[in-house]
Each structure stands twice: as C-alpha cells, then as structure tokens.
Design a protein around this nucleic acid. Structure first.
Lengths: 139, 139
DNA sequence: GTATATGCAAACCGTTTGCATGGCT
DNA sequence: AGCCATGCAAACGGTTTGCATATAC
C-alpha cells in the first residue's frame, strides 16, 4: 500500500462524504489506489485484502461496497445471477464478460454505437441501458 | 388447460427430445400453450401451476427449467442478481426490465440498432450480447 | 426391465441483519 | 458524548442435490 494509493483512497472517500475508517481506507486504496477502474466481487475484494496483509471482515466488505454504491462512488453490475459485481466506473458503459473465468471488464465504449432505442412503454422512462457482451474462448 | 395448449406443449417437448411426463407437459403448456413468448421466474411459474389447479414441486420446476435451457428450448436471462428469469424466446434480443415491479419483457428489437461492436480481445469471440433497458416510472 | 424423472427435505452459497463493541468527530 | 462503523455469527432466500420412489420407453 503506497502513500499515494492511500491518498487517492482518502480523496475518493471524501468525494462520497464517507468517514475514513481503517477498513474503508483499505478497501478504497485497493479499488482506486492506482487510478484504474476496477470490477470486483465482494469475495474477490476480500481475498485481495487478505493478500495485502490487512484484515477486514467479509460482512464489512459487503456493507462497505453497498455504502460505496449508495454514495455514488461505485455501481453494481449484474452479469451472473450467482454473484454481484461492483464497478468503480459509474457512468453508463458496456462490459465484456468472459464466460470461462467469470471476469468482467470495460468494453471500449467508442466501439459500441446504439443507433436507436425501442420506444418506451407509457409512464416509464429509461433508467439505464445495460450492455453485456459475453465472450467465449475461440477453440 | 385447453387441448390445443397441451398439443403445443407436447410438440415443444418433442423439439427438445424431452420425455413428455405429466410435470413437463404442465409446465410446457403454461409456457408455450398460447404461442406467446413468456418470461418467468421459477417461483412465478410454480405459482402459475398451483393457480391452474395442478401440482409440481418447486424443485422440479427448477430442474425442469434448467432442462428446457439445456435442450435449447429456453434461455436464462440475468437482470437482477437475486432471481433468475427464463425466456421462451431463444434468439438474441433486447429486454425491458421494470425496476418497480421486477417484470421482464421483450423490447421491440427493430427499435434497437447496434451500429458497431467493440473489438473483441484476442482468443475470444462473442457468445451473446445482452441488452437490458431498465425502466423506472416517470413521476 | 432399464434408464430417467420426480418429490421431498436437507444442503448450499452468496448476501444481509441484529447486536454488542469500538472508533471517528 | 454521541453517533456511526465494525465484527461476528446467525438468519435469510433463491437454488441445487442426494436419495428413495415412480414413470416413460
């Protein structure tokens, strides 16, 4: 955990008006410490914490990821019914999902062009358009 | 359960090379008996069975929906981490998801136009493109 | 007769919650 | 001091599974 990563984590928490507790700083640094977008599962992030030598309970990882989402710092992405993914990038953008290893990553959004959207039923408006491009290994 | 619905269910099972047991016929008739596409959850379909006066165990509903998917008769659609949806329409098409009541339905695919797709990572090909248009009530 | 499907209840697994403790401001 | 965050373990809900029974072919 570099000082810079910690600093980035701290700023990020501030942006969400969340108190910089030890656990939140640990998670935040792992998530945004290098300035890259990240796609994690609760379990995966928990493992990453343990690997880094720190310790945060799994329940707190869940609660904290939820708190990050509520604060608008992250976004929940649904690609696989059995697990939730959390994305540090919060704008509406397409994802690649590798079916072989369950990995999620950003798809270059410039490549995707949606020319038109179906007309929406009366009384409703579009909250978000989720695009998941499922990838399988070529054999 | 009309004779015609039963007949449709029977043909549908045949298409998937599945034995026409009482339970499968019941489910099949409810799913394709009127020729319309359907989007169901296991729980919802189970309720529909009970409402129709028949009886199939919930475990069998789950197992049978899975069997239908394996046979290529249905498709699993992931929109909400907490539940699985099953769709009788098996081609690649966009969905409307009403966030207020958790209802899933087909979006008119003619309305959606994807002009171009992001280039796919080396060694992978596109298995499917899932498009879920999340709808919220206008207030 | 043999393979396969069903039902039940128990196992399962990711996630959430209640409650007592500890830490931030 | 007061409020909010944390940890643990237990609860939870949707889904799957093991095994004995029943059914299609």
């Amino acid at each position: 955990m570099t000082p810079q990563a910690l600093e980035r984590g701290r700023n990020w928490l501030e942006k969400g008006a969340l108190r910089p507790t030890r656990q939140r700083l640990t998670l935040a640094s792992l998530l945004v410490g290098d300035g890259e977008n990240r796609h994690v599962t609760a379990e995966g992030l928990h493992d990453a914490v343990l690997d880094s030598g720190d310790r945060v309970s799994l329940a707190t990882v869940y609660n904290t990821l939820r708190a990050f989402c509520d604060a608008g710092l992250m976004q929940e992405v649904t690609v696989d019914g059995s697990r939730s993914y959390f994305d540090t990038r919060v704008d509406d953008h397409p994802h690649f999902y590798r079916e072989d290893d369950g990995t999620l990553c950003d798809a270059p959004s410039k490549g995707l062009e949606i020319a038109s959207l179906p007309s929406v039923p009366e009384g409703y408006e579009i909250a978000r358009v989720d695009v998941v491009i499922r990838l399988r290994k070529t054999r």
